[in-house]
């Protein structure tokens, strides 16, 4: 035993060393994240104020604001949610509640897994070829929203399905035993139970839609818009598009605008997530 102690001591040194390496692997990305946020905040401080939010874009960085992009993003995401949530949750209900293991269902399942891995820029090409050209929506708000809806649909379906899966089967059986039809059981018993988790998934999907840039560029969002969209067929811009436009300018001052835009974008996402957490908490507390 004594003999082995020196070996063991060396081993223990490497063990604690390796543990520190692993800890560093966790800490480093988080520190970088913190650094990134801090840096953006500092840069944004140069520009962000009320006039930044309430102004239209301008060729002068100090005057340029983000209003049309903010409004555009709001419309775009609302439309996207209105399209993607019912369809996606419907698909999840179909997969989880109606066709447990049928061939169609497993085909759809494999398909959704594959769709989730398709690069977002390719959804842009789909939107351009299908909605903008073939359907004839033009480079409009609704074309952008349809594109984003298809893009986030796999997220909605997968999270909603997971939420439905956690509802115990005994509750469905209880509903059936009372004489509920399948849909009644889903609507009155399964859905209320799964709602908090479905909501979380929905927010996740919407957050993704707010930040998406590439598909909107391909579909044809404008980069310099001095008006607010007046209908679903209007040309539009969105927060990330405006940020991209400012990042691409050589002048340093526009970079501050970009940073300020990023802060607005992240703040919007943060608020959205906070709302989701709040609702989730309230719904869950009501029942226990």
């Amino acid at each position: 035993m004594r003999h082995a102690t020196r070996n063991r001591r060396r081993e223990r040194f490497w063990e604690s060393f390796f543990r520190k390496i692993c800890l560093a692997a966790v800490a480093l990305p988080l520190l970088i994240l913190a650094g990134l946020l801090l840096n953006v905040l500092l840069d944004a401080a140069q520009r962000i104020d009320w006039s930044f939010i309430s102004s239209y874009p301008s060729r002068k960085p100090a005057l340029a604001g983000i209003l049309p992009a903010l409004v555009g993003s709001f419309y775009l995401v609302s439309l996207t949610a209105a399209i993607a949530l019912p369809l996606g949750i419907g698909a999840a209900i179909y997969l989880q509640e109606y066709r447990g293991r049928s061939r169609i269902a497993s085909l759809i399942e494999v398909n959704i897994a594959n769709l989730a891995g398709v690069p977002s820029v390719i959804y842009g090409l789909l939107g351009l070829g299908l909605f903008v050209r073939t359907v004839g929506m033009g480079r409009s708000l609704i074309a952008g929203a349809c594109t984003l809806a298809l893009l986030v649909m796999p997220i909605v379906i997968m999270t909603a399905r997971e939420a439905l899966r956690t509802v115990p089967n005994t509750l469905r059986e209880a509903a059936f035993a009372l004489g509920a039809t399948r849909w009644q059981a889903i609507r009155r018993v399964v859905m209320p139970q799964a709602l908090p988790s479905i909501l979380t998934g929905a927010i996740l999907a919407i957050s993704r839609a707010i930040g998406e840039t590439a598909p909107l560029i391909v579909v044809g969002a404008l980069t310099f818009v001095t008006f607010l969209p007046d209908g679903i067929d209007a040309p539009f811009t969105a927060l990330p598009i405006q940020i991209f436009n400012w990042v691409s300018r050589p002048q340093k001052a526009f970079l501050y605008n970009a940073a300020a835009g990023i802060v607005v974008l992240l703040a919007t996402m943060l608020v959205l997530n906070a709302i989701a957490v709040y609702f989730r908490h309230r719904l869950q507390r009501r029942w226990s």
Binding site: P168, T170, L171, E173, A174, A175, A177, L178, G179, A180, T181, Q184, R188, V189, P192, Q193, W287, S288
Partner: peptide, 26 residues
């Protein structure tokens, strides 16, 4: 009617709504 092995009241409903759950269907 059926009663199951493990009690399974609907967790998202009040006591009252649990009793009425079956009636409200029709």
């Amino acid at each position: 009617g059926m009663v199951f092995q493990k009690p399974n009241p609907f967790p998202t409903m009040s006591i009252r709504d649990n009793v009425l759950a079956g009636l409200k269907l029709t």
